[in-house]
Nucleic acid binder design. Structure first.
Lengths: 152, 152
DNA sequence: GTTAAAATAATAATCGTTATAAAATTATAT
DNA sequence: ATATAATTTTATAACGATTATTATTTTAAC
């Protein structure tokens, strides 16, 4: 993914968003670090580069990006909005132990079937919670709780 | 589904939850009306029958039910926790127009595949947003916006 | 350069939820 | 039965993420 200032600027301009410095930086951050950051993470990280930045601006900016469908809102935990610049339909797995969020991909035709015929579907969200393989390994090494690891 | 007081009481007792009146009523409400209510909906509805009820009790009760895995938390809209007494893996479709939430079922083996090998998966959540068929019909009758209705 | 529009920042308000502490209820032991 | 302890419920306050409001700054138009 091209995350140069020019490319990000172009992306904003293409979507009729005036490419102000804060906007460029927020988008750049989302594209560069695909960590599904919270507002606070974005804010405190960018504050290092933009000392005058306010959290309101981050909220406003993300609101615009959502409206224009440049990012998607990830709603895994109540009271913790996260943002993803990858707007393709994909799933998120959150590890309850290390809190990391992993992307995963699937054939999106599998959902939205059956009873939902004749609906207009705008958004598809899939998320899982559990313990990631790395944390399972640690847990097992320490002789912790026994979890059934899932094999597909 | 059996939603008599006795059956609900039994359900709580089986899960080592003391079957107090508020708890029975909250569970009964969730089982009877499969509308995925918010805390406020549960609270204001039950207040009619239990005038001394406090919202804290509803929160506490739902918290216990979540812990014991008697209900699941539905996280479709930020700032609007909803609860579902159907803990089977199934999806929710929320109509952006009429706000109704429809259940839908799918083969759960389809998610959690691929990259998530060796993870322990505790929860699977799938939700969609869009316009339901009824609202699409109204919209079309009124000559509103054109949506592509989805046919699977 | 001056004026108008837009974006940003600072501040306050809102609202769902959680925490705390008091009151009421229920269970236990004598 | 009654006193005591434990649990549950209630009332109240606190919290924190988000939103609204207003002022300030920046950008664009003339």
């Amino acid at each position: 993914m091209n995350t140069t200032i020019e490319a990000v600027t172009q992306k904003l301009v293409n979507n009729k968003i005036k490419p102000s410095y804060p906007r460029i930086k927020v988008m750049e951050y989302l594209m560069k670090w695909e960590s599904h950051p919270t507002v606070d993470e974005i804010y405190s990280e960018l504050l290092k580069e933009i000392p005058t930045l306010s959290k309101t601006t981050v909220y406003n900016t993300l609101g615009i990006f959502l409206e224009r469908n440049l990012v998607q809102l990830i709603n895994i935990e109540e009271h913790e909005a996260r943002f993803d610049a990858d707007i393709s339909v994909h799933g998120h797995f959150k590890c309850e132990r290390c809190a990391r969020i992993e992307d995963f991909y699937f054939d999106e035709s599998i959902i939205g079937a059956l009873s939902l015929q004749n609906c207009f579907i705008r958004e598809k969200h899939v998320y899982l919670k559990g313990i990631c393989s790395a944390c399972l390994d640690h847990n097992n090494a320490e002789g912790g709780i026994k979890y059934d690891s899932e094999r597909n």
